[in-house]
Each structure stands twice: as structure tokens, then as C-alpha cells.
């Protein structure tokens, strides 16, 4: 216990190095192309491979190609929410201003990717299972995740005082993180219509490598793309907050009206 304050403090200093908006913007601008272009390359390569060159499945036929969209989207839906939870801890414990801005920006992107996961799951379920939707544990827990995202988006923008919105949304993000292990293990804990994971940490993937490679490629591409979009949005948000503070600073009051009129 005696060691924790220094550890907490040291972690705080580390996180706050990048709380400086100028430093973040500089670093972000340098990082952006390294995320954007590989993301585009890997996503197109992975999806192209999956759509045109990977083999059809022995029982699902060509419908298995939906996997190359659905699985990366599902992984990112969870990973994005885990990102929200990390931001929430940074925000609640260290009052990190960038974590709040990042949380505002992760929300809509994560909600979109979760919607993509649900929609492609439906499009996959109809021809394969014979139904668009069932209320099994996996599908329901992902739907709950989608609503958690929507709640976060609404809550973080709901207050006139943004700080209160950040606090409330951070608490929601942390509480909602309980859903993540439920999603992950739902297919092992309960009977579900959804099949168990093909790729596990412990065993060999029950998937032909000729399908695993394009899947890995598109997962990498999707992840980089998610990061690139969140980074771009967070950079824009930092710039916008700087614009707001510039416009509202008393020194600039005179040009404020002119700027608004333009």
C-alpha cells in the first residue's frame, strides 16, 4: 500500500505528458499516416482476399465470406468499449482531459461498428441458421453492448457542464464493461445458437489457414482503421476546443463577432 501513491503518481505523470494538447496534436499528426494508409491497405487486401480468393466453406458455402466483415467488426465492438472503459478510469482517477475527449469520439465510432456487427450477423444468420435474429446469450449481450454505446453517446452530451457529462459517461462505461466478459464467454457458459469461438488462446484454430489469413488481415485493417478514425476525430476535437477557448478568451472578444459573421 505504501508503494501505491508513488506508482499512481508516476502513472499520472506519464499520462499527463500527453495531456498537453500541443504535444498530442504534434504526436497525432505524426502518427496519423502510419495508421490511415496501412489500415486502407490491409482492409482492402483482407476483404478482397476473403471475397474473391479464399475458399468456400464445406458446409456454409460462399456465405462464409460474411465472416471477413462480421468477425473483425465484432472484435472491434468489444475492443472499442474496452477503450471507453480505459478512458473512463483515466478520466475518473487522473481527471485526464484527453481521455474525456477520446471517450466522446470513441462512442459513435464504436456504435457504428457494433451496428455493423449486428447487421452482418443478421445477414449471415438468415441464410445459415434460418433466422434473422434469436434471443440467445451471444446475440443479446452484443445488442446490450450496442445500447450501452448509445447510452454513452447520449449521456456524455447530455449536460450543459461538459465535466459532469464526462463523469457520468465514465461511470456508465465502467459499469457497462461487465458486458464484455459476458459477450466473450456467452458461447461457452450457455447453450447458444451462435457457435463457439474458432480462434482461442489455448487450442489450434478450428479454421483452415486459407480462411484464417484473410481474416487476420482484415481484422488488422479494421483495427488500424478504427484507431485512425478515432485519432482523427480526437485531433479534430482538440483543435475545436482550442478554437472555442481562443474565441471566448477576452483578448479576442473584438474579433469574435467578425469570426462568427464570416
Amino acid at each position: 500500500m505504501s508503494a501505491t501513491p508513488t506508482l499512481v503518481a508516476r502513472a499520472g505523470t506519464f499520462f499527463h505528458r500527453y495531456a498537453n494538447p500541443g504535444r498530442f496534436l504534434k504526436l497525432g499528426a505524426r502518427l496519423q499516416p502510419w495508421l490511415t494508409w496501412p489500415a486502407l491497405l490491409f482492409t482492402l487486401a483482407g476483404l478482397g482476399w476473403g471475397l474473391f480468393f479464399s475458399p468456400a466453406d464445406w458446409q456454409q458455402g460462399d456465405s462464409v465470406r460474411i465472416m471477413y466483415v462480421h468477425v473483425p467488426a465484432a472484435m472491434l465492438a468489444s475492443a472499442g468499449y474496452a477503450g471507453l472503459a480505459v478512458c473512463a478510469v483515466l478520466s475518473l482517477v487522473w481527471r485526464h482531459p484527453l481521455a474525456d475527449l477520446a471517450a466522446v469520439e470513441i462512442g459513435p465510432v464504436g456504435a457504428c461498428i457494433t451496428a455493423l456487427c449486428l447487421a452482418t450477423g443478421s445477414l449471415w444468420g438468415k441464410p445459415m441458421w434460418g433466422t434473422w435474429w434469436v434471443w440467445d446469450a451471444r446475440l443479446t449481450s452484443v445488442l446490450v453492448l450496442f445500447f450501452l454505446y448509445l447510452g454513452h453517446i447520449a449521456l456524455i452530451r447530455a449536460f450543459d457542464d461538459p465535466q459532469r457529462g464526462y463523469r457520468a459517461a465514465a461511470i456508465l462505461a465502467l459499469a457497462g464493461a461487465v458486458d464484455l466478459p459476458i459477450i466473450k464467454f456467452s458461447v461457452q457458459w450457455w447453450n447458444t445458437l451462435h457457435q463457439p469461438d474458432s480462434i482461442t488462446l489455448t487450442g489450434a484454430p478450428t479454421m483452415s489457414s486459407s480462411m484464417l489469413w484473410p481474416l487476420a488481415l482484415s481484422t488488422l485493417g479494421f483495427s488500424l482503421g478504427f484507431a485512425a478514425i478515432v485519432l482523427a476525430r480526437t485531433r479534430a476535437a482538440v483543435m475545436e476546443s482550442r478554437i472555442r477557448s481562443l474565441l471566448s478568451s477576452p483578448r479576442r472578444r473584438g474579433s469574435n463577432a467578425a469570426g462568427d459573421a464570416a
Partner: peptide, 10 residues
């Protein structure tokens, strides 16, 4: 409803 397993192979 058909439930397919986690096996994917050509």
C-alpha cells in the same frame, strides 16, 4: 434452425 459449428474448412 440449423446451428453450424466453429469448424471452417474448404
Amino acid at each position: 434452425l440449423a446451428k453450424h459449428d466453429e469448424t471452417y474448412m474448404p
